[in-house]
Amino acid sequence: MEYEAAISSSGVLEALRAFDPRVVGTLPLALSVPDSDIDIVCHAFDPVAFAEAIWRQFQACDGFRLYQWTSSGRPVVARFEWSGWPFEVFGDSRLVGQQHGWLHFEIERRLLALDDGRLRKAVLQQRSLGIKTEPAFAAVLGIDGDPYRGLLELASETDIQLRARLNSL
């Protein structure tokens, strides 16, 4: 089953509609590796209601886990399996458009759209070695330091600046 079909048949987007769910990560970017999961970010303006919505819909799923971080806004995270696909649902009190996971996804999507295919090939090569997505982008793009922060800093660059980076690959 394709990941889109798993999302649809799970009903996760419908169950979490009130929380602005958005699919992010390697699957929609076509950068997945065999152990990639389906990542969904949400605006959990009410963490208790968010956790209850996930619990009601997915508690019986294989591998179900639900927890809340103790720092950084205390996001709620759920993990479960549906139709052989691992899901990770992340609910943060910030609007989705302000969450780091969404911002990383957006800059990665922009970079891939501006590229002629060399970036995708190089990032996939890094991913095949077991490197996570953001560190893989950072390695290919020559971003020093924290790869997550480095990608966030790229988000403010214009398409012209990003193309210049890509042309140096």
Rank of each mutant, 00 (worst) to 15 (best):
S36W: 11
S36E: 10
Q161S: 15
A60L: 07
Q126S: 03
S83H: 10
A6S: 08
L31W: 11
D39H: 13
F90M: 03
I131K: 13
A53I: 08
G117T: 06
V89C: 10
A53D: 14
E157F: 11
T133S: 14
K121H: 14
L129G: 04
I40D: 01
L103S: 00
M1W: 12
P135M: 03
L27Q: 15
V41H: 05
Q126K: 14
Y3A: 08
D115T: 12
S8Q: 15
R17A: 12
D146Y: 08
E106Q: 15
E153M: 14
V96T: 06
V77E: 07
G101F: 04
L112Q: 06
F19G: 03
H104E: 03
D62T: 11
F19E: 02
V24C: 04
P28N: 00
V77R: 10
V24A: 07
L29P: 04
F64A: 01
P86I: 10
P86G: 04
M1T: 05
A53R: 07
G73V: 00
G145A: 14
W55E: 14
T70I: 10
Y3I: 02
A122C: 02
A78S: 15
F64C: 07
P34H: 09
V12D: 05
S71C: 05
I38G: 10
E4Y: 01
R149E: 14
E4A: 07
H100M: 06
D62C: 02
D92F: 08
E157W: 13
L27K: 03
I143K: 07
A60F: 04
